[in-house]
Design a protein around this nucleic acid. Structure first.
Lengths: 266, 266
DNA sequence: CGACTGATTGATTTCATTCAAATATAGTGG
DNA sequence: CCACTATATTTGAATGAAATCAATCAGTCG
């Protein structure tokens, strides 16, 4: 709806906008040897900004591993209302559905590099590398806890709290490692943020403006946000999903699987 | 908050309100041989209505398998606002957290029978039975898709659509098998439903009344609801999460793991 | 039978949405 | 390089759906 008709998948010669890498380069994620093997079996692909590469209801024939860029995961209601379920970044897996068809759609927010692995091959890999299955299980459990935190946000938080939570989460997000960034780059438009937070574009904009006026943020451009008072922002976001909690949680994950930082996918 | 202080865990001599079974009986779920083995290693326990048996933030020392009754899973904000994440019924697993502490709390809505398995033993079982891990992974992926559907509901549906979705989901829920029941028993109070749908008690009540006046429902008592026009109700609920979709999805799961019908847990 | 809890109904308020307009930003072709 | 167009964002005013505040009603239990 909010986005132009997908111009289909695109070739690889253009360097990735956010990391400069090309198709054959890996952007630093997926350092685990099992995942190297997995990557070797996968097709590499570049997806143009705005293009859909996974569609709710379509046969779930592949799993995807993002190596570069940002994607939005979403569902639509018949009348066009959209819920953005999360933003996937380098290192994340998509398409681990439990049934024959995808349950969510995914589009590139900015040009995305990904590995496309046929589901049939994944089955074989799982048999070959039991640790991979354990890792996927932990990842799925982690995704679930993220989704539950978002349910808390959508069901019970105010607009102000939602926007603050989003910024705090995005700051900690891609690199879950300490410390949360104070300068945020938001590659997605306001409409994506609104649909992620269960708000409208106008409310997101107004709320950001208010946080700016109150001196918590600076907003040099719509896609660049400077967090001036991170502690105050985290306080508004609510004690749950605080950087501290999430970091501790992520820390444990990293000890199990060094070199990886995963987030919300499906 | 909304519930009395948990009167701690209770002994086993009282028969389960909803199934009549006692501690040593299994209520028909967990027919899979691996799960039989799992059950043999677990402590059996009865939890009184209103009692909390899993607490967000506490060390995640056990996983739980419900054999009888209904539990609510929830998270709290510091100021007491509550989000109910789901209702667990017989056959569901709880406590498959990705980090050292539980990320959600669980309370019995009505008296609950459960198996309490030390996490350390689960680790061993996973090594012993690779299929169990695969099954858990599929379950987690399924839970995730349920959570995403709920995010759609919380972020983008109206009160009317939320209540309709809840009723449709509950009708299909416990027994995902066809056909959805027309007579629903709701063991949880209105406050639980409100906190599950991101609404207030009053709005839930008003909405149910309106659906009753419009001839879609009959409400002989607060906990008993008769669905008079299931198709119309499903239409209000929205095409997504329609009985048809969910049933197809569940059907696939059942082919993989006969004798089990799992739902939303964490 | 009162006292208590949970559910329903009513009156009013409020926060976010909707409708509408202005402003900023990015992209394109002359 | 700049005017011009299209798109995204911000801001403003009015509306509305659900929340809040406040009784009333209906079961339960000692």
């Amino acid at each position: 709806m909010s986005f132009p008709a997908a111009p289909a998948l695109v070739d690889a010669s253009v360097p990735c906008a956010s990391c400069g890498a090309r198709l054959d380069a890996r952007c630093g994620a997926m350092a685990d040897p099992h995942l190297d093997h997995l990557a070797a079996l996968a097709l590499r692909q570049t997806v143009a900004a705005g293009a859909e590469f996974m569609a709710e209801g379509e046969p779930a024939e592949h799993v995807f591993g993002l190596t570069c860029g940002t994607a939005r995961l979403f569902k639509l209601l018949p009348d066009g209302r959209r819920q953005v379920l999360g933003f996937a970044r380098a290192g994340q897996f998509l398409g681990l559905a439990s049934c024959r068809t995808y349950t969510v759609s995914a589009e590139a927010v900015e040009p995305v590099h990904l590995h496309r692995l046929p589901r049939s091959r994944l089955r074989g890999l799982l048999d070959q590398y039991p640790m991979l299955e354990r890792w996927l299980l932990e990842t799925a459990a982690y995704e679930l806890s993220i989704a539950q935190e978002q349910m808390m946000l959508l069901g019970r938080k105010t607009a102000r709290e939602r926007v603050a939570s989003f910024l705090v989460g995005w700051a900690a997000g891609g690199r879950p490692c300490v410390p949360p960034l104070s300068h945020l780059h938001l590659p997605m438009p306001r409409g994506d943020i609104a649909d992620y937070l269960g708000l409208t574009i106008e409310t997101v904009s107004r709320t950001l403006t208010r946080l700016r006026i109150e001196g918590l943020l600076a907003i040099p451009s719509p896609s660049e946000i400077e967090v001036l008072r991170p502690v105050a922002l985290a306080a508004i976001a609510g004690c749950n999903s605080s950087p501290t909690d999430m970091m501790r949680c992520d820390e444990e994950r990293r000890q199990l699987h060094p070199g990886l930082g995963l987030g919300a996918g499906a």
